[in-house]
Write a protein that binds this DNA or RNA. Structure first.
Lengths: 120, 120
DNA sequence: CGAACATATACCCATATCGGCAAGTGTTTC
DNA sequence: GAAACACTTGCCGATATGGGTATATGTTCG
């Protein structure tokens, strides 16, 4: 048992939770404020069960909270979990900044070599 | 045809590419510099074909580049693609900063209401 | 309590994904 | 050219995933 695990459960990892475009849409929508599940489905053009499933995943990784309000269930954004992703990618900031500088430096280097050869 | 798509192809989306822990490990390793595929596999304790497959995904979304060096194939980090993820999550920064403040404000609000009722 | 409303779950299907293993491809060396 | 590397690809099996449809659950209202 526990032989093979096809992939990390989407429900246990924020990185996986936001890998799905529709879930990212939900998070963006919720920035505008709390919303009942049906409204999420309507505004994003997804089926009600579909929205419900995505909201469940987001809830399980803690990116949204829900509270009952009469017959409705209101979903609220809790963006704290996104911070880990932001921080992780931030650890590469120097590298994407350097990408072009490095290329440029390399080109300059080649030019220098050419010049040296020409001077010989 | 085009009947159902279980999920966005991992190969077309940086979000999906970094949803896999081992691929994140590879990216972190490559921050230390260019490395041949075998070394990636060894240093991260994954099988050689396994590493090769993950590197392929990273290559296809543009997070790494490869160049031939004799029999070896050297992989280099190109972190520029991570910038979109960093920017996207950055769009939520105010929300995770406000998370506690909001909660606090809410608590204060409740206290106020209690006080008002008590004064009636 | 029964109808109406708002969601969540269950179940099914087609496909994507990851890991292991076997085999194929490109490169150097003798 | 053959053997030795260094990888990449193909194929298989087990499972995760997303979407649809039908059904169950929980809440309010008359």
């Amino acid at each position: 048992m526990f032989a093979l695990m096809a992939r990390a459960a989407t429900t246990s990892d924020v990185f996986n939770a936001i890998a799905e475009p529709q879930r990212r849409d939900i998070l963006m929508l919720l920035r505008a404020g709390e919303r009942p599940a049906t409204e999420v489905a309507e505004e994003l053009g997804m089926s009600q069960p579909g929205a419900s499933k995505h909201l469940r995943v987001l809830r399980e990784v803690g990116l949204v909270h829900d509270r009952r309000e009469g017959k409705q269930r209101l979903y609220t954004l809790d963006a704290r979990g996104l911070r880990s992703v932001h921080d992780w990618t931030g650890g590469f900031e120097q590298f994407w900044k350097e990408s072009f500088e490095r290329l440029d430096a390399y080109v300059q280097e080649l030019k220098q070599e050419d010049r040296s050869k020409a001077d010989e």
